[in-house]
């Protein structure tokens, strides 16, 4: 039997993130949302599948993300010259050719930030799901919250598609393994974020540290 408490089990005092309305929120069924009484914004959700679903998804994302980043996204043939690069490889060429700041603007939101979010979520979800009490879960979750708006894999995917159409005039294109796995990573990443409720994670973390304190006192 799992001792992981979910938010649905108790009435809690809640402050709306958007309009500051103070309200007592009753239990929410799995798969339903709690909506602010004043501005109708979503206060929190109670996603179906608890913590298992985002954990399973984020592991899948991690695998796809790694494969997508070590394989070329496309092979180009321009007047007999064959080119093949990964996302990081393309950013590196960009860096060397004298636009390091633009290379960073391309590479950070498409590779580093999503990579940190995925790795961080794996760590935190593992720790919560198997009650491992791993260190630094709270600062990592705060960091993930700060990084989320800067992860732009979905926009980058559209960017790859547009550049393929543009390059089709100049070169012969063969789509690589990196591209297919990147598409899967983007879809699964969106599903992971949709299946996560930060509030539930924080409740679980609070429970864990509460238990830890009891052990320390006893």
């Amino acid at each position: 039997m799992s001792s992981i408490k979910t938010i649905a089990q108790s009435d809690i005092l809640f402050v709306c993130h958007e309009c500051d309305a103070l309200q007592r929120v009753p239990a929410v069924e799995p798969g339903h949302d709690a909506i602010c009484i004043r501005c109708k914004s979503r206060l929190f959700r109670n996603p179906k599948g608890g913590i298992d679903k985002p954990l399973a998804l984020v592991i899948a994302v991690m695998i796809m993300f790694i494969v997508a980043n070590i394989h070329p996204i496309m092979d180009l043939t321009i007047v007999g010259v064959k080119l093949s690069t990964t996302i990081t490889g393309a950013a590196y060429v960009f860096w060397q050719s004298g636009s390091p700041e633009l290379a960073a603007i391309v590479w950070l939101p498409s590779v580093l930030v999503p990579g940190l979010i995925i790795a961080g979520l794996c760590y935190v979800l593992f720790s919560i799901r198997f009650q491992l009490n791993w260190p630094y879960t709270k600062p990592i979750l705060v960091l993930i919250d700060r990084l989320l708006p800067w992860g732009m894999m979905d926009v980058f995917l559209l960017g790859i598609l547009v550049s393929m159409v543009k390059l089709a005039d100049l070169a012969d294109i063969i789509i690589g393994l990196g591209f297919y796995t990147f598409v899967i990573a983007v879809v699964l990443y969106a599903a992971t974020i949709a299946s996560l409720e930060p509030h539930t994670l924080w409740e679980s973390l609070q429970d864990q540290s509460g238990k830890q304190n009891e052990f320390e006192n006893g």
Binding site: I78, L83, T85, G89, A90, V106, G159
Partner: peptide, 26 residues
């Protein structure tokens, strides 16, 4: 964030095409 689209397109094209081809994109 969707406004980043064109920057990603230029970045990708410049990065992909510059490797010793007759065509360069900057």
């Amino acid at each position: 964030k969707w406004s980043m689209l064109d920057i990603f397109v230029v970045g990708l094209m410049a990065g992909l095409v510059q490797l010793g081809a007759l065509t360069t994109i900057a």
